[in-house]
Design a protein around this nucleic acid. Structure first.
Lengths: 155, 155
DNA sequence: TTTATTGCAAATAGTTTGCAAGCGT
DNA sequence: ACGCTTGCAAACTATTTGCAATAAA
């Protein structure tokens, strides 16, 4: 676990005390995913579901901890994988070691700041998205990921 | 280090004994990259440069070892990073734990077989590649990576 | 002979997992 | 009460690095 939380993104979402109606929604979503609405999962769901964020297990863990939430890093890892299985988040294709998860599961793509280890969405209209190509015989296209690598101008 | 070498790809390239002219080319390339033409680097360069391959450190190490080449995994890792710095290979953006390197540094994109941990090039013409978009203020576009995720038909 | 490079083993980073204790229903 | 979850620590996988031995120039 690294000390620096490098994946900055949109404004930090509300802390653990979501409004009752949102809590109810989140609880329902968890149940529908076959998961018990535990305190830890409710908190993480509140930070992720319906928001536009790019997180790693570590950034999410640090954020929740800083907000006074008491949970373990292992639970964050496990919860992210469970949420992924339920389609609530999805893993972004980036080179490098850590897994980055995106809470926006609609079709969109990413700018990757190569020197800063940071990811943001590509605003709609900035990129002509190609049609899905044919996959090889016997396979179907699951989805298409585009990563536009950015860097500071060379000179 | 895992036992299974899962990244299959194009036919295995010739073993350590490349023709003299090719050896000379490889040596020149290494020098131009500021690297001494050691036996290990010559062998790895022979397996990579001018070929169309997708390798991980481990698959490359297993291949060279199986061919009777005597080198260490650490050297393969270091050499791949050096080659990457010299622009001889480049890392492919894929989710997941290992780093995959591509010896084809020209503009092309990839099919990713999600269930099989395998990558192949997308044949030219199969994908309408979009124009490079504008980067945000103060950044320039380094390159654009497209990964088309494939899976076996659902049912 | 001088300096870069290698190999080993240990260190590091990220992630997963086994199991006892605890919480949700 | 029952069984899913959690947290901890240990295990695991991938990769990097320090350093003494070695090979290239």
């Amino acid at each position: 676990m690294t000390a620096k939380a490098s994946l900055r993104d949109h404004p930090a979402p509300a802390a653990s005390g979501a409004e009752p109606s949102r809590r109810a929604c989140l609880a329902t979503i968890l149940r529908m995913a076959g998961l018990r609405a535990t305190r830890q999962r409710m908190d993480l769901a509140d930070r992720l579901v319906g928001r536009d964020r790019h997180v790693t297990a570590e950034t999410l863990y640090l954020e929740a901890s800083a907000a006074g939430e008491d949970l373990s890093l292992a639970t964050v890892y496990n919860t992210l994988r469970q949420f992924q299985g339920a389609g609530l988040v999805r893993e972004i294709a980036v080179e490098g070691l850590r897994s980055v998860f995106d809470t926006d599961t609609s079709r969109h793509h990413h700018f990757y700041f190569a020197d800063e280890d940071r990811i943001i969405d590509i605003p709609p209209g900035h990129l002509l998205v190609p049609d899905l190509p044919e996959g090889p015989e016997g396979y179907e296209v699951d989805r298409l990921d585009i990563i536009v690598r950015l860097r500071r101008p060379s000179r």
